[in-house]
Design a binder for these strands. Sequence first.
DNA 1: GTCTATATATTGATAGAC
DNA 2: GTCTATCAATATATAGAC
Lengths: 231, 231
Amino acid sequence: MPLIKVKMLEAEGGQGAVKPTGRKRARAQTRIQREKQEVILEAALDVFSREGFRGATIDQIAEAAGMSKPNLLYYFPRKEEIYKRLMTAMLDVWLAPLREIDSDGDPVTELRSYIRRKIEMSRDYPRQSRLFANEMLQGGPRVLDVLETDLKGLVDEKVQIMEGWMDAGKIVRTDPYHMIFSIWATTQHYADFDVQVRAVLGKDRGGEGRFEDAARYLENLFLHGLLPKER
Amino acid sequence: MPLIKVKMLEAEGGQGAVKPTGRKRARAQTRIQREKQEVILEAALDVFSREGFRGATIDQIAEAAGMSKPNLLYYFPRKEEIYKRLMTAMLDVWLAPLREIDSDGDPVTELRSYIRRKIEMSRDYPRQSRLFANEMLQGGPRVLDVLETDLKGLVDEKVQIMEGWMDAGKIVRTDPYHMIFSIWATTQHYADFDVQVRAVLGKDRGGEGRFEDAARYLENLFLHGLLPKER
DNA sequence: GTCTATATATTGATAGAC
DNA sequence: GTCTATCAATATATAGAC
């Protein structure tokens, strides 16, 4: 099954996040305001995903966004707010594929499309992947609570689905948690360690086709041997 | 097969790296000098692995090392030199397990111990793993040449071994490059994304046993289905 | 070898003219 | 809304006393 272009929201975050928390007057945003914020967030994603929160500077972001530093700060008064906007938007989008795993679907089909979507996201949105990886390396100070509540809850739910499939004899018994970790690790590796992957593959195999190859390898790795009948 | 305590050099780097490049007089280092440098490198590993090169500050490192900033700079005149020392020492140690894969050994045994050693390193030396991950996320500006020469050469060599095993019918045919990437990704995930792993597993499964569970899962994932006879 | 003091540049953020 | 000018804090690194 070939990789397709994934349709995914760009990092925007809920509209709710834009409104001032005080909201003395919930004033509607102009189109230009939204567009400028969009440009800033796009530039910030570039810088934060490469350098991490501390390593990134407002100067770099402003330059990448093509505006002056004070001008940027007019739209986002604090560096941290840009970062938080990116993180929440990213988390939301990043977990969408996992949410879609359907207990009523065919196990192998469900897992196969999960793996495929994850590798597509690494191919199409590597910066979001790196942004998250950077946050993790730092110990996740700004998302730890989300991980322990929302993420854990979501994973637990999907683990139960997978255990149901095992109980029903639909797939071979394995450790669902570590299977999910392994799918995350392998698929995101192609975004986070892209330099290394391309350096090792060289120019003959390091082109765009590497994602196809990876998808094929990973689908086989995780799905082969999962069907009880095969043995 | 249970995990054992791995024996590994601490980040020290070759002795050659210590000598001044000019070496007007190749003066031997005193014991105290080496010990102080050791303390600094240990502290620097802590900070760099969490914050990346740009995000880390000499202040943080000096405080972690329990000395003043000028005192630290007496031993390492530039921030970049501390970082480079850590990187070269890390790379050397980090690739040791891959180097040990032996073409004359039994394929499954060789791969099993490779996986086991890699997960042991994530357990015992998570900071080294994160240091490297941080460098990769930034695009590997300080190691790109090493990746393209030494690392690629090493991987190519081991890929040839694996292809030899496949040609001889000793293991099932698969993509050796992506297999190696997947082993790297999955094992290092337990160091790099440690926060996430522990958050998801919760307190019941997130203890030290998680490395045992991971090792068991990964050995099965990569090795099951590799023997032609099993099918 | 270690310290205080400091030079110099860069950082996040603000003031105020236009 | 956008700019120049600038502040206060922090950054890397050095000078020089002890």
